[in-house]
Amino acid sequence: MCLAIPGKIMEIIDNDPIMRTGKVSFGGIVKDINLAYVPEAGVDDYVIVHAGFAISQLDEKEANEVFGYLKEIGAIEELLEP
């Protein structure tokens, strides 16, 4: 039930600070999602959604961190291996 998934904001349909709502697409399935907690997120941004609410905006720059880190540790290990 704690499942939260990434989705892409397609459209903002209500900009009231509390009711801020957008159409968010999850691989093609579109739902109305409350965006009050991600006031800076706009159309084309990705957000993490849980129970009808966006709880976090995904950071494009940090998104490749997993692969960068892997490359880095791979490279370091290669240096250390004889």
Binding site: I18, M19, H50, A51, G52, I55
Partner: peptide, 15 residues
């Protein structure tokens, strides 16, 4: 729920 769900429940009560 855990903290993940708390923002949703808080907003429902607030509204």
């Amino acid at each position: 729920g855990f903290e993940t769900t708390a923002p949703a429940n808080a907003m429902a009560v607030f509204q």
